[in-house]
Amino acid sequence: MAVYEQIGKGYDLTRRADPDIAARLAVHLQIKSNSSYLDVGCGTGNYTLALAKHGGIWHGIDQSKQMIDAAKNKSNFVAWQVAEAEALPYADEIFSGVLCTLAIHHFAALTPVFQEIYRVLMGGHLVLFTATPEQMSQYWLVEYFPEAIYKSAEQMPSLENIRLALNEAAFNSVDIKPYSISENLQDLFLYSGKYRPEIYLDENVRSGISTFALLASADEIAAGCQRLAADINTGRITDIVNKHENNHGDYLFVIADKVVNKANI
């Protein structure tokens, strides 16, 4: 994941595990203290370590050596490894759950990754946290950074494609749980400033968000921030935020099951 070698240096300045998201992930994974779990695309390990506090034996993989080095510096409690999601370095059926947060849009194709995850799962849940293009088109950020949001949404797999890839990988069932941004969100990913628009004026915040760090031009960022600052000062931003409110959630938890047929064991 070479793109994250570029933004990894200051990543942890603004990116940290949000306690509410971590708690929801733990519930969806149904963590058991004596079982093993894997975080695919773990980055610097923020959510891996947050989930490890809920129990279990944890492993984390990422393509970025820089991200894994940062994770190793935080804790040796997790078995960190540089690896490709399409070729997981594990034996068959050894994990009771697999986690992947805000990373599936970086995979060249979903089905090979989901097939590998299915292979290493002994039975249990794959839990994804992601956003769909349809959700992203509702972000009020499109008013200020239209090209960047369009490019970002374009690279996100649709819910239909996620379902199809999970089905192709033989997952038995898929459950969808919409997630809406809270005002005190601690992990400053793309739409974290839904109710705090001023954070997008902070270069440190933007540098930890791949949409701004990798997809937005300097000219678009400068012009968008200028308009955003003006609208914050006049109060017009409130109307913009309200105009883009929706009932479909800002992100999604996708929970897929691998059910083992005990009659065949």
Rank of each mutant, 00 (worst) to 15 (best):
E245M: 08
G41M: 06
S192W: 03
L49P: 05
V27R: 11
L38P: 05
E245K: 11
M136S: 08
Q135G: 04
E5C: 04
Y4S: 01
A216P: 09
G55P: 09
G45F: 04
V260N: 02
P146C: 12
S158F: 14
E154N: 14
D219G: 05
I7M: 13
P19Y: 02
A263Q: 15
S173G: 09
Y144P: 04
S180T: 04
V259P: 00
P112V: 05
H54V: 01
P146R: 11
G249M: 00
I265V: 12
D250W: 00
V259A: 06
A103L: 05
I181W: 10
M122L: 10
E134Q: 15
A213F: 07
H125E: 08
P157R: 14
C225T: 06
N261T: 07
N161Y: 10
Q138V: 00
F77L: 15
R119K: 12
F189K: 07
L228C: 03
H244M: 13
S210A: 06
I255S: 12
K177I: 14
P112N: 10
T238M: 09
V241Q: 15
G123H: 03
V127T: 06
N46A: 15
I232C: 02
S180E: 01
I221K: 10
D92M: 04
F212N: 01
H28T: 00
G249C: 00
A218Q: 15
A70L: 11
D18H: 00
A87G: 07
Q81Y: 15
I265K: 09
A79N: 15
N261M: 10
E93A: 07
R16D: 04
G97I: 01
A213I: 10
S137E: 13
A170T: 11
M136E: 06
E198W: 05
G208S: 14
G124Q: 02
L141D: 07
G56Y: 03
G56D: 04
Q155L: 05
E93T: 01
Q66E: 10
K194M: 15
Y150I: 07
S182M: 03
A50R: 03
P178E: 05
N246I: 00
G8N: 10
P89D: 08
K74F: 02
I181A: 08
F253D: 02
F253H: 07
T111A: 11
P133R: 13
Q186P: 04
